[in-house]
Design a binder for these strands. Structure first.
Lengths: 93, 93
DNA sequence: ACGCAGCACTTGTTTTTTGCAAGTGTTCGC
DNA sequence: GCGAACACTTGCAAAAAACAAGTGCTGCGT
């Protein structure tokens, strides 16, 4: 299995990179991600679980029953790949 | 819709980036892609059609009933993003 | 102290995508 | 003119994603 397919096994699922991109701006709460991205709530819950298990992000307990999702170092390391893809997408095709 | 999601609309489907990565080494025939990547043949046919429609690659007629798939300039421009993702995947998680 | 609103999800159900297996048409070398 | 290779297509099952509705907390206002 190539390095690329190893990466795609972690962040290749639908919405995964968009979630990580959103977290590059700093920790976000569940409801913020949901509203900003328009991702279905069950998919969001699944992705956050997978990305946490993969060590890309972690839950931060906030006050009372709220928490935030923040990128780990491994998650932050995706910045270059995300920027490169976004720049590619920005060129009209 | 963000630049990133525009990019993912084109190359976010399963196998798409792996196909493009393989073509970064030069034009390849259908059967080569199939054998090298292990991608199901109907998915390969679908992706090649989509990527051609998106201007990422083009069909080159070869001799008799064979043809090759080659990246366009737009397809080649994905190299940086693919390299960045592959480097990320290569770091152990 | 009771109802209501917000947060972070879960639980069905339907639709879409993917994967597997087998088959089709064309061309070429023998 | 026959078998094999190439480039696909077709039909069907399994998996993933999307849609809709509901659940369990907490905290605030009255």
């Amino acid at each position: 299995m190539s390095d690329l397919s190893a990466a795609l096994d972690v962040v290749g699922a639908r919405w995964a990179l968009l979630i990580v991109e959103r977290l590059l701006d700093g920790p976000q709460r569940y409801g913020d991600l949901q509203r900003d991205l328009g991702v279905p709530t069950n998919i969001l819950a699944t992705r956050l679980r997978e990305l946490e298990a993969a060590g890309v992000l972690r839950r931060l307990p906030l006050m009372h029953n709220t928490r935030a999702y923040a990128l780990t170092d491994r998650g932050l390391a995706l910045r270059e790949a995300i920027v490169a893809l976004a720049r590619w997408g920005e060129q009209e095709g």
